[in-house]
């Protein structure tokens, strides 16, 4: 694939897992995108941060626990995971509560990062 056709894809996650299917199906797109040699990043804002909460146990709701997949992203060369600081704090969470390593950004830094993208997908 030529240089020109590499685009910056950002997946913007603003929804909590399980209550709706969006988080799971968004993750499925992320995995596919990895195969296209694009520049991929994931942004977590608002309730989307809950997708990354450690210790998810879904047996009782008879739903697949897809949270381990976030840890597998590294293996697909998807290492840019950004979390918005105010959203994290508003939920009483810190980086230690998350199941993967993330980069914590201020609102303005997140806004600037969005500006730089070619394709923004949110579900």
């Amino acid at each position: 694939m030529s240089e020109e056709s590499i685009k910056k894809f950002m997946f913007v996650n603003r929804k909590a897992p399980y209550g709706t299917i969006y988080a799971l199906e968004a993750l499925e797109v992320v995995l596919i995108t990895a195969a296209f040699d694009q520049e991929v990043s994931l942004a977590f804002l608002d309730d989307g941060i809950y997708q990354l909460k450690k210790g998810q146990q879904t047996k009782g709701i008879e739903t697949k626990n897809f949270s381990p997949t976030y840890r597998a992203l590294e293996g697909y060369d998807i290492e840019k995971l950004y979390v918005e600081k105010e959203s994290l704090e508003a939920r009483g969470l810190s980086e230690e509560d998350l199941l993967v390593d993330v980069t914590v950004l201020s609102r303005a830094e997140m806004g600037n990062l969005m500006e730089e993208q070619d394709v923004l997908l949110s579900f």
Partner: peptide
């Protein structure tokens, strides 16, 4: 909170 979030995060446009 979509609009509220947008106004908080987006830097302009």
């Amino acid at each position: 909170n979509s609009l509220g979030s947008c106004l908080n995060v987006a830097t302009g446009g």
